[in-house]
Design a binder for these strands. Structure first.
Lengths: 112, 112
DNA sequence: TTTGTATATGCCTTGACATGTATATACTTC
DNA sequence: GAAGTATATACATGTCAAGGCATATACAAA
């Protein structure tokens, strides 16, 4: 089971996703737009397809690929836990950092 | 230059970031909480530190690590381009998917 | 049916990275 | 200073993924 994070770790894959965010494309279009070799594109598309990030419909010899944005939700959800740090005002961040600098009341590790 | 996406692609690294989101910790604390070996923790922390995701202060033999949340902003920013797909109402997504199904008025690729 | 176009796949090489074990370093306490 | 604690680093190893090239497959046009 490959994770969302593995998917978006690859730059070319991110580029493909970004491109598809603007509308569906054929393999050839992606190939030319992103200046990748055709096999490279096909392979990335396969990964993206099997992971549920894109889907394709057949048009004669062409395959038209289309984004399945829901798949990215998980990554966004994970980032949510950090969003509080930068969203809102700088103050919120500052207050937090401030808090971070004080010793937390956790179980003091050094048992010696 | 290692990217944000490479950083968060590693599960243990994500775990460390999540843990640090709740407050600063020493290496030993991380080690025990996440049940990783000490060298593993140190190595991931090194990567995180050099990439600007955490910082450490010295306390005798201990190093207290602390999150630098700003570093994650870039990932959040990248995801922003997809957020419109799922944010708001289902309608928004449906309308989009609908649009995606229609042939886009791009340069028809097949020049033959 | 031959030729061209569009996409997928197989094989191979290469490089990056995560981990484990062992060890070095620094500090502290006795 | 000797022994223990906390962390970093070196080295060796295994895994895995990305890319290149060649080729297979499917469809189309002539």
């Amino acid at each position: 089971m490959i994770s969302v994070f593995d998917i978006i770790a690859e730059p070319n894959r991110r580029a493909i996703l970004t491109l598809l965010a603007s509308g569906e494309r054929t393999v050839g279009e992606i190939e030319r737009r992103l200046r990748m070799t055709q096999p490279a594109v096909s392979k990335h598309l396969r990964v993206l397809r099997e992971a549920g990030f894109v889907e394709a419909t057949v048009d004669a010899q062409r395959r038209v690929y289309r984004l399945k944005p829901e798949a990215l939700l998980e990554a966004d959800t994970w980032l949510e836990q950090f969003r509080r740090f930068w969203s809102g005002h700088v103050d919120a961040l500052e207050r937090h950092l401030d808090r971070m600098h004080h010793p937390h009341p956790k179980g003091k590790a050094g048992r010696k």
